[in-house]
Nucleic acid binder design. Structure first.
Lengths: 152, 152
DNA sequence: CAATTGAGTTGCCTCAAGGAACTCACTCGG
DNA sequence: CCGAGTGAGTTCCTTGAGGCAACTCAATTG
């Protein structure tokens, strides 16, 4: 965890980073997304320190991205699942995968493939405009201050 | 910088995080994207420590996301600009903005708006399938091992 | 020649990350 | 009933990254 907190900045990027910007958090999200939901399983899959894992899980639950649920009462056992807020964060992971596949995969090719339910094909995500439906990239837009911009 | 490096993992998310996963890096990228390209300007805008800023810039240049260019020879002055690789990373920022706007903006509304050049409207990004063009979210896909998956 | 600006670098200090061991509650096999 | 096993953390110690401030160096402006 960095000392400077991003949560108070008037920037949606900074505020998103406040939630999942710390090391390991996106990988925890990925694991929960693919079905690794128990503490020990996460710890072994990631090779993360148990202490840091406990901290991150607590944080992500507090932020409403994950939910901690008891799936057995005797013995008490828990698992972590995605909330709606968390599922929508996974979109971010898809975009990371796309960039990582393009720029870091190298000769061996992408480590994972995505099959889209709607068409059944292996594909990747593309960004489109919510209004006109055309492709939309960082170079295709102007950024202007919005209502929540800091005064001054 | 976390001690555990993500760059060697067989996962495009981890490898993307290796490039921009460290604290501040996405915000540096955002600033360069919106035209804050000089060292001191970045330092003042972000409130980041000069030491960490120097480290991050060096890392991002090494990774080919930013380019360090001289825009004046006498006196020698430099600025940082986005490479193609860096511009494509900005797509990630757009998705962060979208999530942050939805889940963290609150009453005040989003701090920034995006106007799409193609249609001239204020809009946000949506994820679509590269094959069928239909919406594509984390809940709409199956993840299966690809050619670059680690053996074992 | 002094002050200013851009772009870093150096040094010190604190707190977070890594690692390993320990706890606690419960279950299962003999 | 006893010991081993499992899930889910917690505690302790060491190292190193992040914050802060001061310093450097080169060139420019007054």
């Amino acid at each position: 965890m960095q000392r400077t907190r991003f949560g108070d900045m008037a920037c949606s990027i900074a505020r998103t980073l406040d939630v999942i910007g710390e090391p390991w958090s996106p990988l925890i999200l990925r694991d929960v997304y693919v079905g690794i939901t128990r503490f020990d399983a996460l710890q072994q899959d990631l090779g993360i320190s148990r202490k840091v894992l406990a901290e991150r899980l607590k944080w992500l639950v507090e932020k409403g991205v994950l939910a901690r649920q008891q799936y057995s009462s005797r013995p008490p056992r828990h698992e972590y699942t995605l909330t709606t807020k968390g599922e929508e964060l996974c979109d971010l992971l898809l975009v990371m995968v796309r960039w990582g596949d393009r720029w870091t995969a190298g000769e061996a090719g992408p480590p994972a493939l995505h099959r889209h339910h709607a068409c059944g094909e292996f594909s990747h995500v593309e960004l489109h405009c919510s209004v006109c439906g055309q492709p939309m990239h960082a170079t295709d837009i102007d950024v202007v201050p919005g209502p929540g911009a800091a005064a001054g």
